[in-house]
Nucleic acid binder design. Structure first.
Lengths: 249, 249
DNA sequence: TAAATAACTGCATAATTTTGCATATATTTA
DNA sequence: TAAATATATGCAAAATTATGCAGTTATTTA
C-alpha cells in the first residue's frame, strides 16, 4: 500500500468514525504508530483532519474555499477593508456591493459582529455564511457570469424597499471631474439604489481605480460620504479628493 | 533546488509571462527539458497551468473551487445526476433545489446546454456560472447558513410567478406511506412551490434517504412525476415504489 | 503524583521517486 | 512534404523520502 492510499484510508476512517486512535489505525493499516502519527501530522497541516492526543478527529470541511492568491493587489485590498470595517457597529443594517475588495471585507468582519447584511454577490454571500451572528439577505436576480453578482431591475426594485445604516460600494472608476463612474449601465443603477437606501455611503477604491473614467455615472464627489483608499497620508492624489470636500479614510 | 520549489518557479514564470517555453524554463531552472515537461504535465493535471505544444500558458484561475472529496456518497450522486440530466432538453426552463446531488447535477450539465435555470442555492448558482449558455436566475431571500440556500416567504412568493418545464428536487426523506417529507417547514413549502411552478417534478433521492420520515409533508407518492434513485433494477425497494405507481429512473 | 500511554527526535535502512539519456513517435512550420 | 522541433517511453543511476526503532520527553489518567 502506498503512502497516498494509506493517508486516504486514514481520512476515510476519520470521517466514518468521528474519532480514531493511532493504535487502532496502526493495527488496521499494518504500519507502525510512528508512521500513523506522521500521517496524521501531514493531514492535519493540510487541514483534512484535526490531530489530537491519541489520534485524530474529523474537521468540519468547507464545501467551497477560495483561492486568495489570485486576487490582484490583495494586500492593498485587505488594508482598505480593515479601514472600512472600523466604520461598522453592532446591530447595523449594511448593504455590500460586489468585487474582491468587498469580499475581503466580508472575510475580515469580526466573528462576533451582529449585523444584517444585504448583498447581491454570490462569493460574498458564501463568505458571510461563515459568520454565525450575521443575518445575510441575498438580493435575487439574473446572474452576471463573470462578476458573480445579480443584476437587473429586480435588484433595483428590491433595494428601493430596503433601509440601511451604511453601504459599502466597490469603485470601478473615480476621478475628480465625473466622480464615480461604472462600465455597466445596470451596475451603475444598482449602486445608485444602494446609496439611496443607506444613511451613509462608503466607497472602496484601490489605487488602480483612481483617475479613471467609465461611461455610466454613479455619483459625483459631493455625494460621497466617505472614500476609503490605500493612499499615503501625504499623497497628492489624496489631497485632491480632500480639497474637493470628500472625507478620505 | 527541490522539485516543489522548482514547480513553484514554473508557476511564477507562467503567471508573469503569459506563455513560457520548455526550453526557456529548462535553461532558467537548470534542469533538462524532460524534467520541465514532466513538471508542466503535473501542474497541468492539477489545473495550475495549461500545457501547450512547446511549453505552458497560464490558466484562468477560478476564485472559488469546491472540495468534492467531502461530498458523502459522491459516486452515487453522480449516477443519479446523470440519469436526471437525460430528462433535460435544450431551451427548457428549469428549477433546481439545493443539496449536493443537485450540485453534482449542475456541474455535470453539458457545457453546450442552452437553458434558463432558477435556483436558490448559492453553490449551485456559483457552479452554473461556468456554463456559458445557461441563464441563471437566483431567487433571493434570507440565507440559511449551513445549507447555503435562501429561505423565507420571498422565495415562495417569487416561485408563484415562475413557470418552468421541469424541476429537480433533492429529497430529504421518502417512504411509501407519507411520501416525501422534510425536516424544515420553510423548505417543505419551497419544494411545494417548485412543484406548482413546474410541468414535471423530478425527485432525486440517494439510497440513505429512503424509508425515512421527517415532520413536514412535501407531497405524497401520487404527486411524484419521476423519482431518480441509485437502486438496482431488481431491488425490492425499487419495486415497492413502482408498484405504488411512481415512475422510477 | 505515579504509572501508563502517547509524542517527539535522531538515525540507519528500505522504498520510492526523480532525473537525464537514448530511442521512437508526433507535431509544427517553412 | 521534408526538415526542424517537440513530445512520449523505458530505463538505470541518483536523489529524496518514508519507515521503524531506540531513547527521551510530554501528557493523560487512575
Amino acid at each position: 500500500m502506498k503512502k497516498k492510499e494509506r493517508q486516504q484510508k486514514v481520512i476515510d476512517e476519520v470521517s466514518i468514525n468521528r474519532k480514531v486512535t493511532s493504535s487502532y489505525l496502526s493495527e488496521k493499516l499494518k504500519v507502525s504508530e510512528d508512521t500513523i502519527r506522521r500521517d496524521i501530522k501531514e493531514l492535519h497541516d493540510k487541514g483534512l483532519l484535526t490531530k489530537v492526543h491519541g489520534g485524530a478527529i474529523s474537521t468540519i470541511q468547507k464545501l467551497y474555499h477560495y483561492n486568495e492568491d489570485i486576487i490582484y493587489n490583495r494586500e492593498s485590498k485587505v488594508r482598505i477593508a480593515q479601514k472600512a470595517i472600523s466604520l461598522i457597529e453592532d446591530g447595523m443594517v449594511i448593504i455590500i456591493s460586489g468585487g474582491t475588495t468587498n469580499l475581503m471585507l466580508a472575510k475580515l468582519l469580526p466573528k462576533d459582529l451582529k449585523a444584517t447584511i444585504y448583498t447581491y454577490s454570490l462569493p460574498i454571500a458564501m463568505q458571510l455564511t461563515e459568520h454565525p451572528l450575521i443575518e445575510t439577505i441575498f438580493i435575487g436576480g439574473k446572474i452576471h457570469r463573470n462578476s458573480m453578482v445579480t443584476i437587473g431591475i429586480d435588484v433595483i426594485q428590491y433595494l428601493s424597499n430596503v433601509r440601511a445604516n451604511i453601504c459599502f460600494v466597490g469603485v470601478s472608476a473615480l476621478n475628480t471631474e465625473q466622480g464615480i463612474t461604472d462600465e455597466g449601465y445596470e451596475v451603475s443603477l444598482i449602486k445608485k439604489a444602494m446609496m439611496n437606501a443607506s444613511d451613509r455611503s462608503v466607497f472602496l477604491a484601490t489605487t488602480n481605480k483612481l483617475n479613471i473614467r467609465h461611461s455610466y455615472d454613479v455619483c459625483n464627489l459631493k455625494e460621497i460620504d466617505t472614500l476609503v483608499t490605500d493612499l499615503d497620508d501625504d499623497c497628492p492624489t489624496r489631497s485632491t479628493f480632500i480639497n474637493a470636500g470628500v472625507t478620505v479614510l
